[in-house]
Design a protein around this nucleic acid. Structure first.
Length: 189
DNA sequence: GGTAGGATGGGCT
DNA sequence: GCCCATCCTACCC
C-alpha cells in the first residue's frame, strides 16, 4: 500500500506521484493515468475553498482517505485526500487503465472497448463500483477491499501538465497531470 | 470527424 | 434558485 506519509504532502506533489499507481476496489483494479490537484482556500475551483461543510469535512481530515462526491445528479467522482490533517487538499482521479476485473467493468459500463471503461472521472467510479458509500474510506490499510498500491518498481513516466477540465474558476492554473500518449486519458488535451 | 443540449439531484447562497 | 471537478445521444458535416 501507499503509506499515509505518501499523501501527507502538498496536493500537487501527491497528484503527480499518483500517476502509475493502482487503485483496487473489490475484484477490479486500474492504473492511474490522469489526475487533477485541488487545493484549499485559495483555489476557487476546489470544493474546500468555501471551508468546512458536511460535504467537505473529509478534505480537511487525515490524508490517505477517499473523498467521493455526487455531481450533475448522476455521477460520482473519486478523490484521494492529501496534505497533513487540518490542511485541505485532494487529488481527483480522472482516468484509469484497466488492470483487473475487465469483464465486470465492461458489464457495469455497458461497453466493450478497453478505452471506454474508465477514461473519465464519472466512468471510472461506475466501472469500479465506487459510490458515496466509500466516502471517507481509508485506502492505506492492507487487506481492505479498497486500497491504492504501488505496482512494481516505479519507472520514469512522461507526464503532461495542463489546465484542469470542466471548471469555470481558476481555469489557467496548470493542475492537471496525465501520462503522455496514454489511450485511457479522458481528453487528448 | 465534430458539437449542442439534455438528463438529473445535491449543495449552498 | 442557481451552480455544478460529467456523460451520452442526436445530429451535422
Amino acid at each position: 500500500m501507499l503509506p499515509r506519509e505518501f499523501y501527507a504532502r502538498p496536493s500537487v506533489e501527491v497528484a503527480r506521484d499518483l500517476l502509475g499507481k493502482v487503485i483496487v476496489h473489490g475484484s477490479t483494479a486500474g492504473r492511474i493515468v490522469e489526475v487533477e490537484a485541488y487545493l484549499g482556500l485559495k483555489d476557487a475551483a476546489a470544493h474546500a475553498s468555501r471551508g468546512v461543510t458536511a460535504r467537505t469535512k473529509v478534505i480537511f481530515g487525515p490524508p490517505g482517505h477517499a473523498y467521493v462526491y455526487f455531481i450533475y445528479g448522476m455521477y460520482e467522482c473519486l478523490n484521494l485526500v492529501a496534505e497533513p490533517e487540518g490542511t485541505p487538499g485532494c487529488v481527483l482521479i480522472r482516468a484509469l487503465e484497466p488492470v483487473a476485473g475487465v469483464q465486470l467493468m465492461m458489464r457495469r459500463r455497458g461497453v466493450s472497448r478497453m478505452e471506454e471503461i474508465a477514461s473519465g472521472p464519472g466512468k471510472l467510479t461506475v466501472a469500479m463500483g465506487i459510490t458515496r458509500k466509500q466516502n471517507g474510506a481509508d485506502v492505506t490499510i492492507a487487506g481492505m477491499p479498497f486500497t491504492v498500491r504501488r505496482m512494481h518498481e516505479d519507472q520514469p513516466l512522461q507526464v503532461v501538465t495542463g489546465p484542469r477540465v470542466g471548471i469555470r474558476k481558476a481555469v489557467d492554473w496548470p493542475l492537471r497531470f496525465y501520462l503522455a500518449g496514454n489511450p485511457h486519458v479522458s481528453r487528448p488535451r
